[in-house]
Write a protein that binds this DNA or RNA. Structure first.
Length: 683
DNA sequence: ACCGGGTGTCATCAA
DNA sequence: ACTTGATGACACCCG
């Protein structure tokens, strides 16, 4: 077993840098990368994973510390570390042709340390390592999380939010479990490592990426069949994915660590803050983006990975966020990161630096977890974490987006539950956006920062869409994919925008929050912004309109966190319900209108009938009058046997069935009527 | 400040 | 058992 020895022991330069970062919070992105200026690391960081990992209930690195290697930061002392021969890492990396492995993990540790504000670097590194494995998208180590006991004295345990409180016990165990998982996989032998290296050796053998990745995926998948959801179409689609990723992560984005060392070695350590992108990378970075030279990875990639890992390790293995109070209160580095990213974009017009974030992520994960051998797609975790850190947005803040009480899934804006959490978050965000006092502001913060810090990150959604949309052939057949390349701005179709975003903007609460949103986010609905915050690679419109088969297929086909799946389902449910409500109201309105029309029609008909009845009554009265006159005329002409006129008051005219007319005394008629009525009653 | 309409959302039920 | 649609109820916002 090789013991991981802290690289900061080699002069303590990075430790110093860490302190600087934590105190000043300056230039997080650049500084983090500049650790490479320091003497080279002493151990390939993959060995941490391959070494088997810790098994004790304490933090995973404790066994290492007991063995004289790694330990918790409070157990470490630079003087106790023997410096490794310089260049060992360099040689190993060169031999393996692996870019970025140590870098990302060190960055992750560093970011975490800075963000957490504590000296517990061991946590950070472990978290980063675990996150790297977790970020691989497999999350196979999650099931082991319960076996790892929570760390002792973890300041992050003092979570304030309900979610964090609920997860705080598992939070420290998550990274440990991940490391254990990664270490356990290392038992499968050096082939795994070789596969990993092969799978990510984009820099020298880009043309073989697809085949290697596919083969590695197949081999690894055989080993992980029990852990990985085996999609029948997965392997068949992988080559396509790999091909796609190859375009992203291929030679263009790879550069050797040695090159970086050489680059940074020319920079004095005391001028770290003065290093600019232009200073760091010779030549035009813009050109480097599209070139195949080794220096074509810009700093934003590194930034993204720092962000990525930092956020990734803040996640519990069960894909829930845990709160890291210290991190929440020490986010200035993130703000600087934010500003620097923005500056980077400003300095490099036309170059979407953030658009390349995933590239390094792929490389890193490929090296840090064999799970990634068959998941070269950037994992959504990374995007979430990237967004969170890059924006100075704590994952808990992201989680708080999903704690809004006016949503069944906690996804709503509610200004009532934010008094404490927002205050904490405002400590950093207020710098950028001024004081914010509501949770809705928090949401706006996230998106504002997201837009500001991540900036162009969403401007090139295709680079961020690591999910295999093309594999979702079912949905392709069902829908016209206007957002097939995952426009993370989630602009709905004009009709949809009109029905959702516009209507949503009516809500003043969202209006308040939208005060802090830029033009892009201002037009997004709440679910759209949530989806954006969680980097869900589907538009809300897609999620809602997607047929159920395609929808389920999508969920099973992609590695999505529980949070993402929950959000996607909520979005789908809310979206459908919204449409249903609109239809219902329209239907109700139509019914009301129809009823009003019916009322009008019936009223008109009633008037007609009234007039007709009046006319008929008038005719009846006329007939009665005429009959009465006729009656008296007839009686006036009638005479009895004695020639006297017949009294009409004593006699009546009665028509028999044969047509003859009889003069009948009224007494007989009345008595006959009484008898008939009597018989009728008897019956 | 109040009111009515519009909208989103949730809970619930039924198909 | 799950999905979906329908709908009442509620909250919120806007004019």
């Amino acid at each position: 077993m090789k013991y991981l020895k802290p690289w900061w022991s080699d002069g303590g330069g990075l430790l110093h840098l860490t302190v600087l970062l934590s105190l000043a919070g300056l230039r997080l992105d650049l500084d983090l990368d500049l650790y490479l200026l320091l003497p080279p690391p002493t151990l390939l960081w993959d060995e941490l994973l391959l070494a088997g990992g810790p098994t004790s209930s304490t933090y995973a690195l404790s066994p290492f510390a007991a063995s004289g290697g790694w330990g918790r930061a409070d157990q470490l002392h630079p003087k106790s570390r023997e410096p490794e021969p310089e260049g060992r890492l360099l040689r190993e990396v060169r031999a393996l042709g692996v870019p970025f492995i140590p870098r990302t993990r060190v960055d992750a540790w560093l970011v975490h340390s800075v963000a957490a504000g504590d000296a517990d670097g061991a946590h950070g590194l472990l978290g980063a390592t675990a996150s790297a494995a977790s970020a691989g998208g497999v999350g196979a180590g999650v099931e082991d999380s319960s076996q790892a006991a929570p760390g002792d004295g973890d300041p992050r345990a003092a979570a304030s939010s309900p979610v964090a409180a609920g997860e705080e016990e598992r939070a420290p165990a998550g990274p440990t479990a991940q490391v254990l998982d990664a270490g356990g996989r290392a038992n499968q032998g050096s082939e795994v490592l070789r596969e990993r290296h092969e799978a990510v050796d984009h820099s020298s053998q880009n043309e073989e990426n697809e085949q290697r990745v596919s083969s590695a995926q197949e081999r690894s998948q055989k080993n992980e069949e029990s852990k990985i959801a085996n999609n029948p179409d997965w392997e068949a689609e992988k080559p396509t994915e790999s091909s796609n990723e190859g375009a992203l992560n291929g030679t263009d984005t790879a550069f050797s660590l040695e090159d970086l060392f050489q680059m940074f070695s020319s920079q004095p350590e005391n001028s770290l803050e003065g290093i600019s992108l232009e200073d760091t990378f010779p030549g035009n970075i813009n050109d480097g983006v599209n070139s195949s030279i080794h220096y074509n990875v810009n700093f934003s990639q590194a930034i993204s990975q720092d962000v990525n890992l930092h956020e990734a390790m803040l996640r519990c293995p069960d894909n829930t966020f845990r709160r890291e109070p210290v991190a929440r209160t020490s986010q200035e580095p993130f703000l600087h990161l934010h500003s620097q990213n923005t500056n980077s974009e400003q300095n490099l017009p036309g170059t979407n630096l953030t658009g390349f974030f995933p590239l390094v992520g792929n490389q890193m994960r490929n090296l840090t977890s064999q799970d990634l051998l068959y998941d070269l797609d950037l994992n959504i975790f990374d995007e979430i974490n990237l967004m969170s850190l890059a924006t100075g947005f704590d994952p808990m803040e992201v989680a708080q987006l999903f704690e809004e009480p006016d949503s069944d899934s906690g996804l709503s804006l509610n200004s009532s539950h934010n008094s404490t959490s927002v205050t904490k978050s405002n400590s950093s965000h207020s710098v950028c956006e001024g004081a914010t006092g509501s949770n809705s502001d928090l949401e706006s913060l996230s998106h504002h920062d997201l837009e500001g810090a991540v900036g162009g990150y969403y401007a090139e959604p295709s680079k961020l869409c690591h999910m295999d949309h093309r594999s979702n052939s079912d949905f392709h057949g069902d829908l016209t994919f206007q957002h097939v390349f995952h426009n993370h701005t989630y602009h709905l179709q004009p009709s949809a925008v009109e029905s959702t975003s516009t209507s949503f903007s009516r809500h003043g609460k969202s209006q308040k929050s939208r005060r802090y949103l830029n033009d892009t986010d201002r037009n997004l609905s709440r679910d759209e912004r949530r989806a954006k915050a969680l980097h869900i690679p589907f538009s809300v419109d897609e999620i809602v309109r997607m047929p159920v088969d395609s929808f389920n297929n999508m969920l099973s086909r992609h590695y999505l966190t529980d949070l993402q799946v929950s959000l996607i389902r909520d979005i789908r449910r809310r979206g459908k319900n919204k449409v249903a409500a609109q239809n219902c109201r329209k239907r109700k309105l139509d019914i009301i209108l129809n009823l009003e029309d019916d009322v009008c029609n019936l009223q008109a008909k009633r008037e007609i009938l009234k007039r007709e009845r009046a006319r008929h009554n008038k005719a009846i009265n006329t007939m009665k009058q005429k009959l009465h006159e006729l009656y008296h005329d007839i009686f006036s002409m009638l005479r009895d046997d004695e020639g006297r006129p017949v009294n009409p008051n004593q006699y009546v005219l009665q028509c028999s069935q044969d047509g003859s007319v009889l003069i009948v005394p009224k007494e007989l008629v009345t008595s006959g009527h009484k008898k008939e009525n009597h018989k009728g009653k008897r019956k």
